[in-house]
Write a protein that binds this DNA or RNA. Structure first.
Length: 925
RNA sequence: GCCGGAGUGGCGGAAUUGGCAGACGCGCCGGAUUCAAAAUCCGGUGGGGUAACACCCGUGUGGGUUCGAGUCCCACCUCCGGCACCA
């Protein structure tokens, strides 16, 4: 073996690691667990095993955590570095439908394929903990967690989830009563309308509890996608109002679906972002998605009626400028309010609004449309009669579905008022424009805002807000409040390939949870698992499990026949808690043992979590929510799941389009003198995310075969900072490849055994004492690389190693004391070649089990150094000084330097600035 | 429109708290090896300038602070990402 043969070496070491169990991570209680070591939990977002196999983004992601895992292991940590598969969900099912095979079979095939590819990269996963969200042993606990949600409610006083049994016992004891609207009130508020728990029947009780459970069946307008045959969460719908998957149209339809009360956690999901070390853009996306805004609810009385319309506003200080009111077309009061003469117009408008998709609404957003209802409301601050309109620029889903319109200080209201010639009043001073032409939306001092009891005139906006809110609260006309954009999480899907709900439906509409002892509820075997797709927006959802055999669908309990819930959970369910399962993946008594969970999640959960930014508001928000519920219920020990999140960048690549603008296969494009062609036809080049749509994918496995996994790993990490998007350039890969070959030539005793290749010098690693210069060079590299590895600066760590290796090339021979620390440092980055050379140097033990070298500070200090001497900022001379020279010594050395002395002769030295070890700057004139 | 992030050679990208800009790699140029090519090895490589030095100019643009600015402050330009009739 004279030249470097990546494939042989890589196979050999991958097998040896597996035989040695090198990367098994013992948990507390396991035989070889070493409690004296600190722990490190490093995790990549687990893959979706699609039929396309692994792509370069996966390779980048897993290589980065693998390097951290190997590095931390060498640094003496107990490292948890697991892998699993997120295998339920739409794409797996669609793939199965396309290929006419059961999704379980295709899923397992895909998992096998991607596992082989992962192993080929030499990744140091603890394969003993591998899991798939589709394993019954796994989704049993997904169902169990769902039951935790179902069986708890959010206690507003404690601001946390509490078992619903506590609520029941408070109702049982009479501490809480039920009012006529089904709301809970304390016993002190008992009246003729309130009822006690004992007066309610089973269904009545369940209806009350359903209002509180964190998982509940709710009938709300949901995103119905007939083409996919399923409903979707808000997070799965694009802002064009189409499905994220497949880009099909999505319609709002009121349907009875499972919902999770994530909105109860708005405040904590927002506040706890301050606890975690996450990229600022990702935190910002979550903050925006939660969408907190402070303001006030204000009640407007209706002329000639007893009831009121409640509006939400962030600018209560502009209340005196409210000249009309607008309700969303779906607002429940619209029909009651509308006067006869307006009825036809209102009906027509409501109908057309209901037929618009979100996309239509957006396109039309520039031109305001609306209809007068004929009704009037009374502005509570000044008693003015203001008309009530309906318009689709007000949405039912936010605030109260009604607004007070202040055209002077809101652009949308201004546009509407202009279109319908409604009055515009200025109530805040400021802005350069005439209020008749444009709204002034900034802050300023209130004006024209006073009644007999309160005046805002002259007050700055924040003060005016406080004053009017206080006044409204005193008068019982409104109160300060906080609104969120986040909606409850729509949690059911009309799909086969997902976790069944552990829920039963009784003949009288009872909803009953499956006993924990009866978990798991396994998916039934079915021949026909296809979804019921359609292009009719009014087609009703038909969950495929409706076609399951009766033996599965019908459950008899205490002589009553129940039907199982036929919907399944969304794809996100499994990924909400998989990081917990990895702590103790084989446990069949708990989702993970308490000891294992406490040990591996210690600190702030997963120590380092790496994945793409595309999950900023989906997986990462959902997982935080579940985690907080489990934390409240005492099942996990940390308030947050992922202490440090890191988003890796995209890998881009050149893509080519022919004259029609159609992408052609990038690998078939030829380049000649800067011109690109495909089958002889000219094509244009652009750069974009590597993937199927641009036909510019490069298969990591193919690169492995050609250059070796070590070269691929090095190149992926060497391209640039991990968090940046950067282009793949196939020709650049030879750089890291040459580096490995040079390492091989420098350090492998086998390299010189015959005469192949240039520059081979034979056995170069020798047992001699290193010189001071050699040690200096080594220890500088150790300091740099250690630092770079800690902050994930793998590109600069590799540069430092290349530099040291280039030095080695120039030495006649290489002392063992330099070669070996170098190999240890190379191990996380290029593990196979490091192992091979290490063993060739005569070691029995693996280099993966060595200790990371420490930088010796003695060698980091230059014992003698040259520093620049400047006069007025220009370098005029250089002097050589000992390292321990103090400022005084540097200053006199600089001034006595021949060249400097001659230059400052006759001038006055005004100031000498000394930067130790760097330079001396003399200010003279 | 609002909120984030970023602009450094032919290219990807380096540069502790402000301290010799361009590490390392690709590419390119020259050389070695070769019948030749590929591969490999050695040397050079920001621009201008010079026989060679010297010297001058250089981190998106314009100002500012400083002995000294890629780095700090102000204004602007460009690109990327997210949100978007959220009251």
């Amino acid at each position: 073996m004279s030249t470097y043969q990546s494939t042989d070496i890589e196979d050999k070491w991958q097998n040896l690691w597996s035989q040695h169990g090198t990367f098994r991570a013992p948990s507390p209680g396991d035989g070889n667990f070493d409690a004296s070591r600190p722990k490190y939990y490093v995790l990549s977002m687990f893959p979706y095993p699609s039929g396309a196999g692994m792509h370069m983004g996966h390779a980048l992601n897993y290589t980065s955590t693998d390097i951290v895992a190997r590095f931390k292991k060498l640094r003496g940590y107990n490292v948890l570095h697991p892998i699993g598969y997120d295998a339920f969900g739409l794409p797996a099912e669609q793939y199965a439908v396309e290929h006419g095979v059961h999704p379980e079979i295709t899923t397992n095939q895909n998992i096998d394929a991607i596992s082989r590819q992962l192993k080929r990269l030499g990744l140091s996963f603890d394969w003993g903990r591998v899991l798939s969200t589709t394993d019954v042993d796994y989704y049993k606990w997904t169902q169990w967690i769902f039951l935790q949600l179902y069986n708890s409610y959010f206690d507003e006083d404690q601001e946390k989830a509490v078992p619903i049994s506590e609520l029941v016992s408070r109702l049982d004891s009479g501490e809480l009563l039920v009012d006529e609207e089904g709301k809970l009130v304390s016993a002190s508020a008992a009246s003729a309308q309130t009822r006690s728990w004992s007066e309610l029947n089973e269904i009545g009780r369940e209806n009350i509890l359903a209002e509180y459970r964190l998982a509940f069946l709710g009938e709300v307008p949901v995103n119905w996608c007939p083409a996919l045959g399923t409903v979707l969460a808000n997070e799965e719908v694009t802002n064009e109002g189409r499905s994220e998957r497949g880009n099909h149209p999505v319609f709002k339809r009121p349907l009875k679906q499972w919902m999770l009360r994530i909105t109860k956690y708005c405040e904590r999901l927002l506040a706890d972002l301050d606890l975690v070390n996450w990229p600022e853009p990702t935190k910002m996306m979550q903050r925006n998605w939660i969408g907190r805004s402070e303001g006030a609810n204000v009640d407007f009385a209706l002329e000639g009626r007893d009831d009121v319309i409640r509006v939400f506003t962030t600018r209560p200080d502009t209340l005196f400028g409210a000249t009309y009111m607008v309700l969303a077309p779906e607002h429940p009061l619209v029909q009651e309010l509308t006067v006869d003469e307006q009825q036809a117009d209102v009906d027509a408008y409501v109908k057309s609004a209901s037929e618009k998709t979100d996309l239509d609404r957006q396109i039309d957003s520039k031109e305001k449309t609306g209809v007068f209802t004929g009704a009037y409301a009374i502005n509570p601050v000044n008693g003015e009669k203001i008309p009530v309109w309906i318009a689709d620029y007000v949405m039912m889903g936010y605030g109260t579905g009604a607004i007070m319109a202040v055209p002077g200080h809101d652009e949308r209201d201004h546009a509407f008022a202009t279109a319908f010639k409604l009055p515009i009043i200025r109530v805040v001073d400021g802005g350069d424009v005439d209020i008749a032409d444009a709204a002034f939306t900034g802050v300023g001092n209130s004006c024209n805002s006073a009644n007999d009891e309160v005046s805002l005139n002259g007050l700055a906006t924040p003060e005016a807000k406080r004053t009017i809110t206080k006044w409204l609260e005193c008068k019982g006309l409104g109160e300060g409040t906080v609104q969120y954009k986040l909606r409850d999480w729509l949690f059911s899907r009309q799909r086969y390939w997902g976790e069944p709900f552990p829920i039963l439906h009784g003949p009288d509409g009872q909803v009953v949870a499956v006993d924990e002892a009866d978990l798991p509820v396994a998916l039934p075997e079915m021949e026909d698992f296809k979804p019921s797709a359609s292009d009719d927006p009014d087609a009703p959802p038909r969950p495929p499990l409706g076609r399951a055999p009766e033996s599965w669908r019908i459950v008899e309990k205490d002589g009553v026949k129940y039907e199982r819930e036929l919907n399944t959970m969304p794809q996100w369910a499994g990924s909400c808690w998989y990081y917990l399962r990895f702590c103790d993946a084989k446990n069949d008594e708990r989702f993970a043992s308490e000891d294992a969970e406490r040990y591996w999640m210690d600190g702030l959960g997963v120590d380092l979590y790496i994945g793409g930014v595309e999950h900023a508001v989906l997986h990462l928000l959902y997982a935080r929510f579940w985690h907080k519920v489990l934390y409240d219920l005492g099942h996990v020990s940390t308030p947050e799941p992922f202490g440090w999140l890191f988003n890796q960048g995209y890998i881009q690549a050149a893509a080519y389009r022919d004259e029609r603008g159609v992408c052609v296969e990038a690998s078939e494009v030829e380049e000649k003198e800067g011109e690109y062609s495909h089958n002889g036809a000219p094509v244009t080049r652009e750069f974009g995310k590597m993937g199927k749509s641009l036909k510019n994918s490069v298969d990591p496995t193919v690169v492995c075969e050609e250059y070796g996994a070590d070269t691929l790993r090095l190149y992926l990490m060497y391209m640039g900072p991990l968090d940046q998007s950067k282009p793949w350039e196939m020709r650049d890969i030879v750089g890291p490849h040459r580096f490995i070959q040079r390492v091989w030539r420098n350090l492998s005793p086998a390299a010189g055994s015959d005469d192949e290749g240039g520059g081979v010098k034979g056995e170069r690693v020798v047992d001699r004492d290193p010189t001071n210069d050699e040690l200096k060079s080594l220890h500088k590299t150790i300091a740099r690389v250690t630092d770079d590895m800690e902050r994930l600066g793998f590109n600069t760590a590799i540069a430092a190693l290349i530099e040291l290796n280039n030095d080695l090339t120039k030495w006649d021979d290489i002392p063992r004391a330099v070669a070996e620390p170098f190999l240890v440092m190379l191990t996380p980055l290029a593990p196979h070649v490091a192992e091979e050379i290490w063993s060739q140097l005569g070691h029995e033990e693996l280099v993966s089990e060595q200790t990371w070298p420490e930088a010796d500070k003695d060698f980091l200090v230059e014992d003698e150094c040259e520093i620049a001497v400047q006069i007025l900022g220009k370098v005029r001379s250089r002097i050589t000084v000992p390292a321990d020279a103090d400022n005084q010594a540097l200053e006199s050395a600089a001034l006595s330097d021949e060249k400097i002395a001659s230059l400052i002769e006759g001038k006055t030295v005004r100031k000498v600035i000394v930067v130790p070890g760097k330079l001396v700057n003399i200010v003279a004139n």
